[in-house]
């Protein structure tokens, strides 16, 4: 589990540039799936055929990052955000580009150091002394460069959002015995910039029921916003988030499966943010859709933290859902 998570977390894959992650996952699931497909938006589907319902399970491969918007004569890069970058956490961080170039995020002299600087005040220094020495080009994308670490039973790394979900899908697919349903494990693209991979793959798969597996926030850190989800409390079963209301039948079925198997779980009401489930739910004439969430602290920072026990309970809950009858 730890090794799968480490490899996924450290891989490079800003929205729209998921190929490295896709190839990594392809290698992890190839021998466990009946069929692999990649669609026009780069979504990877690992399919296990079975006689029951057509079920889509989605986790997104992409991560937030930066995109180079301008390179000045001295070789400093200006950049814009890919997804919900948090300016508060950027200064001093390193970014890495697809070609391996590493840069440091620096900041102009600030008039008021008590305020979080706008993105336009920040730049990336790739160690060049002139424009000619810079290998990256305008339009190239970078991700936060940060290695994976364990902190007790907790895993810390960049892009746990949503490589933790990808890991859950990989591990569930590997553990799954005989397949009762026609299951499309879908590793989606471009979630962070508007659920775009899930929108297209939701239409393409045309599922009868769907689940997303993604991270959710917690309310268990000092002076956190009010939220009844804690790290280590088990997989969270989503009731609602900022973008969707989970299908009540899917939500209750997840609760029932968790209770039958004695899996720890928590019910989740998240006030901001959303997941691929929002897009899949309204695909075509509508799809009953739910979400298994992995509680995660410090989302959209370089050090997103999850609990391995929660990841394990998410894997087991997903398996329990897929191995049983799905009557809503």
């Amino acid at each position: 589990m730890e090794e799968v998570l480490r490899a996924l977390s450290e891989a490079y894959g800003p929205s729209g540039n998921e190929s490295e992650v896709r190839e990594l996952i392809r290698g992890m699931v190839e021998s466990y799936a009946d069929e692999l497909r990649v669609d026009a938006l780069g979504n990877l589907m690992a399919i296990r055929h079975g006689p029951g319902k057509r079920v889509m399970v989605a986790a997104h491969m992409d991560e937030i990052g930066v995109i180079v918007s301008h390179i000045d004569d001295k070789g400093f890069l200006r950049f814009s955000n890919i997804g919900g970058l948090q300016n508060l956490t950027l200064l001093g961080n390193r970014v890495r580009f697809a070609d391996g170039t590493v840069g440091v995020i620096g900041c102009e002299k600030l008039e008021d150091r008590s305020k979080v600087p706008e993105l336009s005040k920040l730049f990336i220094d790739v160690g060049a002394s002139s424009k000619g020495e810079v290998r990256v080009r305008v339009g190239d994308m970078g991700v936060i460069d940060r290695s994976f670490a364990m902190a007790g039973s907790r895993a810390v790394g960049k892009a746990m959002d949503d490589r933790a979900g990808c890991a859950a899908l990989v591990l569930a697919l590997r553990k799954m015995g005989e397949c009762r349903h026609d299951v499309y494990f879908t590793f989606t693209t471009q979630e962070e910039i508007g659920l775009r991979g899930a929108t297209a793959s939701g239409f393409g798969v045309d599922p009868e029921v769907a689940l997303a597996v993604d991270v959710t926030a917690t309310g268990d850190t000092p002076k956190a916003p009010t939220m009844a989800v804690s790290l280590g409390g088990g997989a969270a079963i989503k009731v609602r988030d900022g973008g969707m209301l989970a299908h009540p039948g899917v939500k209750e079925l997840l609760v029932r499966r968790a209770e039958e198997r004695g899996l720890p779980y928590q019910l989740e009401v998240l006030e901001g943010g959303t997941t691929d489930a929002r897009a899949i739910q309204t695909s075509r004439a509508g799809v009953p859709t739910g979400v298994i969430s992995i509680p995660c602290r410090y989302i959209h920072t370089a050090s997103e933290m999850i609990d391995l026990g929660d990841l394990e309970s998410a894997v087991n809950l997903l398996l329990a859902f897929l191995e049983g009858e799905i009557e809503l």
């Binding site: 309310g219 009010t226 939220m227 009844a228 009731v239 609602r240 209301l245 009401v269 006030e271």
Partner: peptide, 16 residues
């Protein structure tokens, strides 16, 4: 509304 947390003898809620 939806219950977002059970806080001792009261419920904290979020809007739907």
């Amino acid at each position: 509304f939806v219950v977002k947390k059970i806080d001792a003898h009261v419920l904290r809620v979020s809007q739907v």
